[in-house]
């Protein structure tokens, strides 16, 4: 009975994974298709990768996306960490629950709403202060920071709660002023969470199409925007190659983040086990 059910579950799992990954595998395979027409197989080739590398448009989109992703990840990590610290370490200040809710709301907000509202804000700002002027790099970066920050804050918050406050109290007890406690104890212990938060924000920014489309301006194409605009005129094999490269990049980022988090969890678990063993 049990083994039959588990076989059923195994089959469902395989089906589910297939559902996710077969399209991606198809994409990767077709990126090596020699034929000019996407649906027609014309043998193996890397010519679309060559086409890609020779396209100035693609290179500038890559550069823009990476630049935005990098600045976004860095700013979101700094701000998200501050928000996480405020939530977990400042005790019960007024409006803490509200602040916590507001912080995670972007996670569940439909992207079109986030994008639209940011666009409206940028237009209003521009009319009032003449800033940010032409939409593009700056506006996309700001938009990305606003939503990646929430993901980072949640990651940091979870880690801080898991760590407990005792070590920070111990440091304060030994005479360390609050800033010293932060730099000598809290941040070093947060490092894995900081790195995985940074990587998460980086990939989120690299992936985003919807919000970027809303707040971008003429000439500022991020990679996803470029891909989307090109396939509107029909499937193109060079875009398959580009997508394959993106999949690879994202997979690497996510793996590093996952490995870091897993290591941290395992270390925590080992510590707990060790402590428990010594109690008996």
């Amino acid at each position: 009975m049990y083994s039959r059910r588990s076989r059923f579950l195994t089959i469902m799992l395989i089906l589910g994974l297939a559902f996710f990954y077969i399209p991606m595998i198809m994409l990767v395979i077709y990126s090596f298709n020699d034929s000019k027409l996407v649906p027609v197989w014309g043998g193996w080739s890397v010519r679309w990768y060559q086409v890609l590398f020779e396209s100035e448009e693609v290179w500038s989109a890559v550069a823009l996306s990476l630049k935005i992703a990098f600045i976004n990840a860095t700013c979101a990590t700094i701000l998200g960490t501050m928000a996480g610290l405020a939530m977990v370490r400042f005790g019960r200040f007024r409006g803490r629950t509200l602040f916590g809710g507001l912080l995670v709301a972007p996670l569940v907000m439909p992207e079109v709403i986030t994008g639209l509202s940011l666009l409206v804000m940028f237009i209003a700002l521009n009319q009032l202060f003449g800033w940010p002027g032409e939409r593009g790099f700056t506006t996309i970066t700001i938009a990305h920071i606003t939503f990646s920050l929430a993901y980072v804050a949640v990651t940091i918050q979870a880690r801080l709660t898991g760590m407990g406050e005792t070590l920070e109290e111990a440091a304060a007890d030994l005479g360390a002023k609050p800033f010293k406690v932060l730099t000598a104890i809290t941040l070093p212990r947060l490092t894995p969470a900081l790195v995985s938060g940074w990587l998460l924000a980086f990939t989120l920014s690299l992936d985003d199409l919807v919000i970027a489309s809303f707040v971008t301006g003429p000439g500022a194409n991020t990679l996803p925007i470029l891909i989307f605009s090109r396939i509107r005129t029909g499937l193109r094999p060079d875009i398959n190659a580009l997508a394959t490269i993106i999949i690879l990049a994202v997979a690497i980022c996510i793996s590093i983040a996952a490995i870091l988090m897993f290591r941290q969890q395992r270390a925590d678990m080992l510590d707990q086990q060790m402590a428990a063993r010594e109690d008996t």
Binding site: L167, A170, A172, D173, L174, G175, A176, K177, P188, R189
Partner: peptide
């Protein structure tokens, strides 16, 4: 807390895991 003439030994010891014994004591 950081200016009080008291020091505490915690129930869980609260040693800094990323510092050696020496550094813990010197902190």
């Amino acid at each position: 807390a950081y200016e009080r003439p008291t020091n505490m030994m915690f129930q869980s010891y609260a040693l800094f895991p990323h510092m050696s014994v020496e550094k813990n004591i010197a902190f």
